[in-house]
Amino acid sequence: METYKKIITTALFASTSFTSFAATIYLDPFADNLRLTDGASALSVVSESKSTLTGGSCVGTICKHNDNSQFSNDGTGGLMGLLPYTASLDTQGLGTDWVLDLEYEDVSGGYANGVSYYDDYKTFGFHLHNKLNGETHKIAELLVTGGHLEVGNSHIDGLFNYDWYDDTVDSDLATSFFNIKVNNTITSIYDLWEQGSDVAWRWDFNIAGGEEILYTGDSTAAFRDVSITGEMQIYAVDEPTTLAIFGIGLILLSSVNRKRFV
C-alpha cells in the first residue's frame, strides 16, 4: 500500500511544483489598461539586505555559519526593470515619478549540510511610491514558502497573498497592478487569488561578492550587508496539467492493482 501512496503523492507533488509554467507578466500600475503590449517574462528586482547570524563559528570578530546557526534578513529594494530589458518601465508609467518599492523583515531560517534554508515564512511587501510627494500604496504581499542559498542556486519561492486587502481603506490599484496571461486572457493576479487560485513566484538571485560573504560580530549576533540582484518570475496554476498528472497517478495505481490480481 505504501508504494501506491508514493505514486499518488509523487503525482500530486509534481502537479504543484514551480515547474508548471512561467506566465507572461503585464503591469497596469494605474488601472488604466496601459499595459506593456508584448508582456514580460520576468521582473528585474534588486535589494539591499542586512543579515543577522546567531550561533555562528567565529574567529575574533569574523564569523561564518554552521549547521547550528540561524539567520534573519531585513531588506529594501525595488523593481528595476522588466525582462527582456527592451521592456522599459517607462512604458508602464513607472520609472519617472513612481517606483515600485520592495520591503521585507525577519525572513529567516537555518542551515543543513552547509546550505541555508528558509523556515519562518514571512511576507515581502510591494508598495507603489511617488518620489515627488511621498504618496504610497500597498500593492501586494509575497508570502515566502521556501528557498535556499548556495552558490549558483540561490532562490526564494512563494505565493501572492491578498488577505490584507480591504477595499474600504486600501487602494484599488492593488487589484489591477499585477496581471498574467491565463488561457490567452490577461487576468489580474488579485482576481485569480479572489477566485481561490494560487499564483506562485520565484526570485532567483545573486549576492554581490558571493553567497559566502562572512559576518562580523560574535556567536551571539553577527552581521553582514549585501546587495542582491535577480529575476522574479510568476507561475500560474495549470489546472489541465494538474488533472493530467493526477490521472497518470491513478492509471499507474490501477496498473499495479491489476498486476496484483493476475
Rank of each mutant, 00 (worst) to 15 (best):
H129I: 10
G75R: 10
W203T: 00
A200R: 07
A11E: 05
Y4D: 13
D90K: 10
S254V: 14
V144W: 01
L173C: 07
I62T: 14
L82Y: 03
T54S: 15
V46R: 10
L143P: 01
F18P: 01
A40I: 06
F261K: 08
D204E: 14
Y111Q: 06
Y121K: 09
I8W: 06
L159H: 11
G55K: 06
L43E: 02
N206I: 12
F18K: 05
T76F: 12
G55R: 03
T54Q: 13
N206F: 09
L34I: 12
D38P: 02
F205H: 06
E141D: 11
L27D: 02
Q92A: 15
V107Q: 02
T10Y: 09
V59A: 12
S254C: 15
T185D: 06
G147Q: 10
W201Q: 01
T16H: 06
I186V: 15
Y104D: 02
M1F: 14
W164Q: 07
D38A: 13
T16Y: 05
K131I: 15
S49N: 12
L43H: 03
T216I: 11
L142G: 04
F178K: 01
W201Y: 15
V59C: 04
L82T: 11
S108A: 15
H137I: 04
A31K: 06
Y85Q: 14
G39E: 06
Y118N: 03
V144A: 00
V237N: 09
G147C: 08
S171A: 12
E239N: 09
F177D: 01
L128I: 09
N133W: 03
G196D: 03
L159K: 08
H127G: 02
G109T: 03
E103M: 01
G81V: 13
L173Q: 09
F13S: 14
